[in-house]
Nucleic acid binder design. Structure first.
Lengths: 213, 213, 213, 213
DNA sequence: CCCTAAGCGAGACGGTACGTCGCGTCTTTAC
DNA sequence: GTAAAGACGCGACGTACCGTCTCGCTTAGGG
């Protein structure tokens, strides 16, 4: 999608109230539907402006006008289709909430992990997609997680000197690692071990207050 | 590369001693050199059989004969060019050795991180490349790490109940996360925090022996 | 142009006395100017409603309203720009007058022959343009010529049994032949030979009164 | 067609006996057949690389490789389809032979005049086609005619001072004029009048030996 | 020492996708 | 009210790459 439009408010016009004809919303929906169909059935390699145009009964020009690359289109279609609102629970017990959230995350990846993986993969050589992915997926989600962790830190459930951003990489990042570079199983038990390692530490003779830093 | 050939022994002929002309080793070298040139200069999207053939003065047929996809070719060329033997130090002090190794890893990523990222990205929708990547990159490196961690665990530097594979995802996996889904800086200080979090734990009131598991 | 408007009176409004009348004439001039610019600079292939609209600051709808095809528009713009009134002299001496007229014609073709050629060429597969061309160019000019020849025939300067329309094709038509299917030079000397051939005949032993017919 | 290949000898390879695969002759035939089909059924405007490729089951790249423009392709297909060898009779009687030839020419134009007209029209803004048309149609045919006229001139059937090239424009050129800029009928009687005007002259009081020149 | 078979260059070819341009229609808003 | 601005389907343009397929040159064995 063009960067002027946000994923969170896809109905927000963000168009100058100039004279010409307005963007047809049904066209947008048809495109996203066709794209999602291709994406889930045949993979992101087959999400091609040519095929989407043919399936949606839409002109290629229209696609080029509103989306910068097939990857960007696939990305937007993915979220329009799933609307995977990963809410973050807050029961007061951080460890329990993390467990809940990571289990839900694993469940999501089981359903559509390969599609997410393909989108992240495509972003590695599609800077437009990389931008969208960062702004509308990576950063918002990190923010949600850091916010929850921040509350826990303030209430004394996480040590003061722990960098919360780093923690995100050691929980969700570890999951993405197993998704993108598969070798070991990616399941709920794995996330439990991630949490345990961090809460308990791995050192049998814990030092006082991280003297190594 | 075709799976019948191993990366480790690229000079092994493995050809039936039939009559005809032998495989020209200089052809292979020219191809890998041309590929590496394209890969580092223009990204994996421009590593194309057509361009490689033109640059290396080689027929497309030859490429199809020896490599299954442009991605596989790029992958092989990357390692032929870098030969990035990430040795694992063993001074007896695990935490020091991990720090050393991760700092070296970060330094490597600073040089060629974008190329690695592109290769991993391409593997998400190229199963041939995914296979090669798994067999010749992901698994061997995990094995090296787990071996070193195993020694440490046996010598009492890691608690008995810690799963070492999980640890790999929380150290190197966290780095790959920042590489592939960039949002926060990926530097040596980050790896120090990764280590600290795991060695010290994040809980200000550590429980006894991971009662949550 | 739409057939309701005449070439001969391009300044005649012929517009309904509605409100926007004066403005419409501005638009027409801007369009014709932009079209002529494109036509002479880039050839008739680049006279496109899209480009004319952009250059003239005019909506495409306006163009479609007043002209049936880019070819028709180019045709009208050509004459609006040149106003090449080919007057026919009548000094009483037919042969001298024909020489004068054909020399002037050649001079005109030297200036804008390629544009005329392109317009005639386009008319071969644009029936709207073909209609306009016939009604507003071919037939009027033939009529002018035949009228002058008719006077000469009545005054005994052309044999009674000569078909004047045929003569037009052997004078001006021969010139168009060299314009449209170039092989030999198209110059004043050529037109002199055209005239001489017809006035003198080519037969060294002229028959009596065209017995072959 | 590319200028390296001649129309007269379409089977002449004219290809360097280099190493690669040879040009498939059946592909060429399929293309020309499909093109001719389109050309005669729908006009030259519908001879499009896209449609020809689809009809002939041929890749667009192949068309671009061997033909410079749709117009050039149409031109070659026209002659491959018609092979309209306009032979020039020589019975010794020039006037009779010209009549025979021009009647045959008119008959040809009745069949495929509109296609020829479209090709000549397209050549006005397609310099590649213009080149082919000149080299393989206009000039060879002028040469045939001039050759026949030359024989007649040497045998005393045409006055010494008559320029034969000019004569061509006044006979066949006049016919093309009526074809391309239609206003009066183009039939056998017209060609008879063309001949009569030139043989008899139009002047009721013929001057001695073209004194005007 | 030649003969034979494989390796390999060159490159034609059918596809599919790319990104752009023009046509003709339709809609919305501003002057 | 008219016409600008412009979205849109359609179809053609010309290019790039993919994967397959001949050719014919080159080069090593084996006879």
């Amino acid at each position: 999608m063009k960067h002027t439009e946000s994923l969170e408010a896809p109905d927000a016009p963000a168009l100058k109230p100039g004279r010409g004809r307005r963007r047809a919303e049904d066209v947008r929906r048809a495109v996203l539907a066709a794209t999602a169909g291709l994406l889930f059935a045949e993979g992101i390699r087959n999400v091609t402006f040519e095929k989407v145009a043919a399936r949606a009964g839409v002109s290629k020009m229209t696609l080029y006008k509103w989306w910068t690359s097939p990857g960007s289109l696939a990305f937007e279609a993915y979220f329009a289709a799933l609307e995977d609102a990963l809410t973050f629970p807050d029961t007061g017990d951080l460890r329990a909430d993390l467990t809940t959230q990571l289990h839900a995350f694993i469940a999501l990846l089981e359903r559509s992990g390969s599609v997410i993986a393909e989108i992240i993969g495509a972003a590695q050589s599609d800077s437009d997609l990389a931008f969208d992915l960062s702004e509308q997926y990576v950063r918002p989600r990190r923010r949600l997680a850091v916010d929850r962790l921040s509350i826990a830190q303030r209430s004394g459930q996480i040590r003061e000197d722990v960098d919360l951003e780093t923690l995100v990489d050691q929980l969700w990042g570890a999951c993405y690692h197993r998704l993108l570079m598969p070798a070991e199983p990616l399941d709920a038990a794995f996330t439990d071990r991630l949490i345990a390692n961090l809460f308990n530490g791995i050192d049998p003779r814990p030092t006082d207050e991280g003297s190594h830093i």
